[in-house]
Design a binder for these strands. Structure first.
Lengths: 224, 224, 224, 224
DNA sequence: CATGAATGAGACTTCATTCAT
DNA sequence: CATGAATGAAGTCTCATTCAT
């Protein structure tokens, strides 16, 4: 009984994710869930007070691994590099094995009409960001990563690349997500590791100078 | 006459963008547009055949700079580096001056129920990607960028970072978009330019190359 | 000028008829007329006060021949038989040459929401009926038609057959309307002319008797 | 439960028929049905997917007797004459007892914008026609009806008369439908039965055969 | 637990018509 | 004469939710 109940509740969440994946947030309706679950619309309300709760359930499911992953990184005492590879690899693998769940990643904006849901989503992303940030900062402290670069930049680069590659993969699934993602990640990590040395080539400065198109082309010089 | 007409038509597009920004795609209703424009719902249909046309209009507006930017890059014979900086700077500036328009960037998934709109959005993003890809490939051929790395990786890194930083900025506008964006971009470009040299440090045993992709969840354990 | 005006006014009527033919009364909208006429919707109201007037115009056009036909029958001093053949032939020819106009014939019920239009239609049909009725009655008085039958019956038979054949032809235009219509009419006229004699065959009475299915099978006997 | 459900579904159909009768197809709106049923518009959609389904339901109801009537004619081994009388009588009685349903008979043209509905209506009428056609053809083979006349003509005459008399009765219910209908039918049947003999009266020169179809508008003049 | 029935709000859209230009 | 712009009313339909059974 309690088992069936749990199953049904989970089933609704999974079905909701499937729908978000296939039809987008706009296609996620109680009726669609009910139809796919083979039950009545009213029955949905036996398990969730309202649609918002279902959305929160989806987010909960979506983030259910997060804590585990973080704890694994910590308990296994991974280096920053190892931790990041572990995280990116894990998420990629998760999305690859269960593509529908990746849809949730891109629904932040869609939740704007539901403050509670929106905030939960932001919280989840924030926690992920913060954790990678910690890893990166540690890595810099440990000498794994170049420490003169803004740690936020590196986090944005890693996270942004992950995020965007996943989006591309969702739109056109013509490559292996995890394989490609890790190749991109290694490209990043290699370039930002301390094993790399920046050297000034003789003509290094003329890069952006002779062409003036808008002030931003000037900026780097100022920064320097 | 024609002037007023254009104004109204444009006004509807701008209002639609404003709404997408503030309420998300789900909040974009004909009623909301009409109310904000101070006209009746029926009046909207004098200017657009249906809601889909409004959405297409929004995308058109959203992408209206793209061609100009590309042509500028080409006509000014910018280097790859210059071109990329120009593009990223231009978009950042555009979004910073007109924050609402940046909302469109994150509505791809929300358009799933409207194939025409969805495809137009994908097309726009595709064109942007292809152009950066060309720039990067050129840069590699010209010796500006390291040529042994996958050009797609670099494109994903640049585009993904841009995309994600914009998303972060949308959620919490507590930093200057263009300034930060360019700092992130320079971080990337600097690291991927040929002015950087990869050197093998003593303990750089398995750094970039012989990485075995697979069972990442296991890997840390093995390492230990 | 006045010419163009008249042309436009007529054009609107003709277009309206065309639309009723192709899309039915439900498809007859001001917009549809305007589009087909290549003018604005507002322009329609230069020529007709409202939609009802257009419908009345359609009916006027539809019945514009009626008076002429009646006068022709009268002035030519046709016999009843000749007159009926003339009328049926004329209408059939008219419909065959201008099929769209026949659509009006079947729109009585559709006009129920517009009392004025409805009544005009009923009036038109009534006038047609009355005229045929007169012809038939005359024919009976003149000995052309069997006079012991109800003249209304004969009118219904002639008119109903015409009406229905036209409907069949509208639905499936796989026969020549006028040709078929006249063949049907001759079949009727021949059978109802005094040139035909009713004879009682020996077993004439057993027709309907042995089977009893509902009271109506009894009725004729009672009538006799 | 199921009982109430069926009642409501049937109620909607019956209400729809009532509306078509009173206001015409143009007056048949979901709102009108809902109001008359005393429920909300949305409630209608619990029972029918859309308006088209309601219309199809109306047609189904409208034709629900057809099969039964045909089977009765066949199982009772009626003669052609008996069968036709049975059919005409049954329909007349049905319409007389439930006048609203007769409105459906005249809505073919109004369905033009709904192909599915239009085709169903045409199918129904076709089936009715075919059945009478069979009866007539049989009657001719059995010697009940004059066999030298076109069976289609006779069918059109019978059906057309029925159809038209019903229309007249709908417009002005000042006579008893069934009684009048049967009197008209007997008039027809009597005249077309083999118990009638065509005799050539002295001046029957060009009665039925050598009629020249064409230019009817001219004919009277020539005759003179 | 589940459902059939219902609902109010609101979505998109169409329609006949008006009015300033 | 003609039109672009607008509108109120109404139409079809969807949605999240409620409630008696």
């Amino acid at each position: 009984m309690s088992k069936t109940y749990l199953k049904r509740k989970d089933g609704i969440i999974l079905t909701a994710i499937e729908i978000v994946d296939q039809l987008g947030i706009q296609g996620l309706t109680i009726r669609e869930i009910a139809t796919r679950q083979g039950i009545s619309e009213a029955a949905i309300y036996r398990h969730f007070a309202n649609k918002k709760e279902i959305l929160l359930g989806v987010l909960e499911y979506f983030a259910s691994f997060d804590l585990l992953l973080r704890r694994t990184v910590e308990s296994q005492k991974m280096t920053a590099r190892e931790g990041i590879i572990f995280l990116v690899g894990s998420y990629s693998e998760y999305y690859e094995n269960y593509p529908a769940i990746s849809a949730v990643l891109f629904s932040v904006e869609a939740f704007q009409l539901e403050p509670d849901v929106y905030h939960k989503m932001v919280e989840i992303m924030d926690a992920r960001l913060r954790f990678i940030n910690e890893l990166v900062a540690n890595g810099q402290r440990q000498g794994e990563f170049a420490d003169h670069i803004n740690s936020n930049n590196l986090v944005d680069i890693i996270f942004g690349t992950m995020h965007f590659v996943t989006l591309r993969w969702r739109i056109n699934r013509d490559f292996e997500l995890k394989e490609y993602m890790l190749s991109a990640l290694f490209t990043i990590l290699d370039r930002f590791s301390t094993k790399v040395k920046m050297i000034q080539l003789p003509n290094a400065d003329e890069g952006s100078s002779p062409v003036k198109i808008g002030e931003f082309l000037e900026k780097p010089k100022e920064k320097k």
